[in-house]
């Protein structure tokens, strides 16, 4: 029986690092070793064309998949238009466009097959 208190409890966003599944990140690092040199400066977030639609940013995507939050990352990635601005501004010289494509390739495509 639900009672209305005028406010709701948020589900906890705490992560248990021992339990999360980072296989996607590990796979990505194997394909794109450059994923590890990202210093999360946020240049990609600032320039992203898709960020106004899905909050897309390579920095956040990397952070999310490191924490096993694949679904959140996928929602962002879905609006990427591969325009390449993030690649041009990356101070670490990461080929973010190729990183995004590789990530899209290795995503478990159960959802897509539905």
């Amino acid at each position: 029986m639900a009672m209305n208190f005028g406010f709701k409890l948020c589900p906890s966003s705490a992560l248990n690092l021992d339990k999360i599944d980072t296989s996607l990140y590990d796979k990505l690092v194997e394909m794109e070793p450059d994923a590890r040199i990202c210093m999360a400066c946020g240049s990609c977030s600032a320039t992203c064309t898709a960020s106004q639609f899905s909050g897309m940013s390579v920095r956040k995507v990397l952070l999310d998949i490191q924490r096993g939050k694949e679904k959140e990352a996928a929602a962002m990635l879905r609006n990427c238009m591969l325009c390449g601005k993030c690649t041009m501004v990356c101070p670490r010289g990461i080929n973010t466009r190729h990183l995004i494509l590789s990530l899209c390739r290795i995503y478990d495509n159960k959802e897509e097959q539905k």
Binding site: L77, R78, N79, L103, R105, Y107, N109
Partner: peptide
């Protein structure tokens, strides 16, 4: 020809 596990979709825009 390449297959992707995650395909971009812009229906939310």
């Amino acid at each position: 020809r390449r297959k992707y596990g995650l395909n971009q979709n812009y229906s939310n825009i």
